[in-house]
Design a binder for these strands. Structure first.
Lengths: 195, 195
DNA sequence: GTCTATATGCAGATAGAC
DNA sequence: GTCTATCTGCATATAGAC
């Protein structure tokens, strides 16, 4: 029945996630995913039009979770600036907990369809930042600034600072605090208030 | 004689640069480069062990020029903070003048050997930032901070802010000024002094 | 519906004629 | 030394048996 079909589909997606988490995109070949899921390569094409669609769906699912986590954190307690900080902290801490996967999602070389998806999600994160920065500027707790630029710059900054530790596999304990201090300065927030 | 051999080698490199500038890595196949240089594909292998070596050499040459330009700008007149700003401005302005090429060097998906080279050069830029930030902190014109983190974050910020305009092909006239303002805030420099 | 085996397409690399 | 033509390897995708 339908449930069984869906189960196979899910099994393939789960296998792809597992391989991605362990070996990055290299392990994510059709043959690899099929083997991991315990089916033949041919069967993969019963559930997905092709490799691109499978990988993109995996990517979307994983990054979607991150987006949710970040947005939930941004809705937590604290003032407007705390919310921006919460985005940075949540994003960074989650990434450092699953380094191989985070590297794959953030920076690993991928082919065009997945890269396109990556750009989309970077924009989603930028918008999350921009929304809160705009509010904070309006409220007068941050100096006037082009929110879109600040947001893009913060996304780039967080990603770049994390890529080193992520590819090395380990991060210094104060990477995240340092990143937060950078963020506060970049926003133009008064350091003393949030140190 | 030897000069003629070297000339062919240079012609191949030049062809690769041209293709990279116009079409990115897609145009940079062995067949494409050979055609552009007016030689057969087989001949490419008289001058280079393989595609990877050719492309990496092209990449190194191009990015090396950017590094030089940035370091020269950082040695110009002005105080310590001006030097960091000069790095950002020089880098951004040069990138926006050759968008397709800059995108290829900065962000376009590439295969592993070139990506490795890209990481190397991001670190070179980071070190350029870090050197000047460290000095400025010592001199007391910037607040205490982990220079390596600030440097990595700035590299990421600049790259991310540029990627949008670069892939779109056009940038707003005040992208660079906004980027400079972000940089000054992120450094912890007093805005009033450099606006 | 799932398997095995094979086809297809591409890009990098090589061999042998000239 | 350079060309044309070919080969190889890989990963995606398909066909046909069960």
């Amino acid at each position: 029945m339908q449930a069984r079909l869906d189960a196979q589909r899910e099994a393939l997606l789960a296998a792809a996630v597992a391989l991605l988490s362990e070996q990055g995109y290299a392990g994510c070949s059709v043959v690899g995913v099929a083997a991991r899921a315990g089916v033949s390569t041919g069967s993969v094409y019963r559930y997905f039009p092709g490799k691109a669609e499978l990988v993109v769906e995996v990517f979307r699912g994983l990054v979607g979770r991150e987006v949710q986590a970040v947005e939930q954190a941004a809705d937590g307690p604290g003032d407007l600036i705390d919310r921006v900080v919460a985005i940075v902290e949540t994003f960074a801490n989650r990434a450092l907990k699953a380094p191989r996967l985070a590297f794959a999602l953030l920076a690993e070389p991928v082919d065009a369809p997945v890269e396109a998806e990556r750009l989309v999600f970077r924009q989603v994160f930028q918008q999350a930042f921009a929304r809160h920065v705009t509010e904070a500027v309006k409220a007068g707790v941050l100096p006037p600034q082009e929110a879109a630029i600040t947001a893009a710059a913060l996304v780039g900054a967080v990603a770049e600072v994390l890529v080193g530790p992520l590819s090395a596999g380990v991060a210094s304990a104060d990477t995240v605090p340092n990143l937060v201090r950078f963020t506060l300065r970049a926003l133009g927030a008064d350091d003393a208030a949030h140190s």
